[in-house]
Amino acid sequence: RFHVIVTELFRGEGYQEGFHRGRRRGLQEGRRHGASHGAKLSTEISFYYGFAVTWRCLLRHHVDVRSRKRMKALEALLALIHNSPHDDPQSALLQEHTEKLRAKFRQVCSMLSVPTDFSDYTRTPAGTSF
């Protein structure tokens, strides 16, 4: 009888210790994953912002109809960036807004006749961190 009580006591303590260690490890891994995902999203949005500002500067003195349409699309892209809930990672709208932002970026690239795949230009060198 004593053996059963001691066994149950150790099993209970082992369970509690394992549960707490697992919870701590899960929180650490979750934070690490969130920081990594957040950094990637931040890099992407920053790239879109720099892209839009640069093209806006290049087109600001052009007054033809085509350039005005391009400027309007660039302004819409910048407005999406400024109104983005990217500073609130808990926002339920973050994923939807990011998809709209990517779609607007592709539209602007199409209007400007530039490729949408900038992955070769946006990769950070090995060893670089935020």
Rank of each mutant, 00 (worst) to 15 (best):
F2L: 10
H3N: 10
H3D: 15
I5R: 10
T7K: 12
T7Y: 07
E8T: 09
E8P: 02
L9S: 13
L9N: 10
G12V: 08
G12I: 06
E13M: 08
E13R: 09
E13S: 05
G14K: 04
E17I: 13
F19V: 05
F19E: 07
H20D: 15
H20N: 14
R25N: 07
G30K: 02
G30T: 05
R31S: 11
R32Q: 07
R32S: 09
R32W: 00
H33L: 11
G34N: 06
A35V: 13
S36F: 12
G38S: 04
T43C: 11
T43H: 09
E44R: 14
I45V: 15
F47I: 02
Y49A: 08
F51G: 03
F51M: 06
F51D: 02
A52V: 07
C57E: 15
R60V: 14
H61Q: 13
V63F: 14
V63P: 09
V63L: 12
D64N: 06
R66M: 11
R66S: 15
S67Y: 08
R68D: 09
K69W: 01
K69V: 03
K69G: 05
K72E: 10
A73L: 11
E75V: 10
E75G: 01
L77F: 11
L77T: 12
L77G: 05
L78V: 02
A79F: 08
A79L: 15
S84Q: 01
P85L: 02
H86S: 10
D88L: 02
D88H: 04
Q90R: 14
Q90M: 11
S91Q: 00
L94A: 03
L94M: 03
Q95M: 06
Q95R: 09
E96C: 09
E96P: 06
H97D: 03
E99F: 04
L101Y: 00
A103M: 05
F105T: 05
F105H: 15
V108P: 01
S110Y: 02
S113M: 10
V114W: 06
T116S: 10
T116E: 09
F118Q: 01
F118G: 04
F118S: 01
S119N: 05
S119R: 00
D120L: 15
D120S: 15
R123Y: 00
A126V: 07
A126S: 07
T128N: 04
S129M: 05
S129P: 04
F130V: 11
